[in-house]
Design a protein around this nucleic acid. Sequence first.
DNA 1: AACCAGGACGTGA
DNA 2: TCACGTCATGGT
Length: 232
Amino acid sequence: MHPLERIYAHLFSMYGPQGWWPLRYAGESPAASRGAGGYHPGRYDLPVSTGGIFEICTGAILTQNTAWTNVEKALDNLAALGAITAEQILLLDDESLRAAIRPAGYYNQKSKKLKAFSRFFIDLDGRTPTRNELLAVWGIGKETADSILLYAYQVPVFIVDAYTRRIMTRCQLIGERWEYDRVRGYIEAHIPPDYRIYQEYHALLVHHAKRHYRRNAPSHSCPLGMLLAGDA
DNA sequence: AACCAGGACGTGA
DNA sequence: TCACGTCATGGT
């Protein structure tokens, strides 16, 4: 069993299914099967509507280098304006859009990003975008593109975020200087390409990192260390 | 009261 | 390529 598989099994046994990506505004998932904050543990059929897909894409852009709690406030404001669809965002004047997403920070940049992505999203006309198409959109980098593919379109790509890097590096599975796509390729080579596993794995890494791998935290012991003691 | 949060882009070597 | 600087609000 590869260390990456062992880590996944361990994290899942510790924390259980995480139910990412949170869906709170699209109203497509029955409230009864939706947990607090819009998380929906155990459901892998979401999103099922265009609104749900777009909400995830919007959240992925707004959460760039930003705490999710701040993104929720921005999404609340957009929902209050009735602007959580691509068409409605494009109808908003720039000043209103900036004001709505202000809690998420970087509002000048992100307002442009949301409009650029909204045009792109409409042109897709329901089709699943390719990774390169997403990367060609201004404001969509590798991590955001992969977040959109994995959580909005159920494409099995592994998201390499700061938390993933920090944990894998400290477990000595990857090098400090490995490029994004090298890390992604390494993980995808050792984990079966099942979008449900990739979704849970990434969410579990984030959850675990928030508890044990804060950037400022001194190198203290982590529960995963014991898992890796036995092999290379 | 610094420090950080589920990054991306522009610029100059 | 690579290393910086910039963007910005809200919680700890």
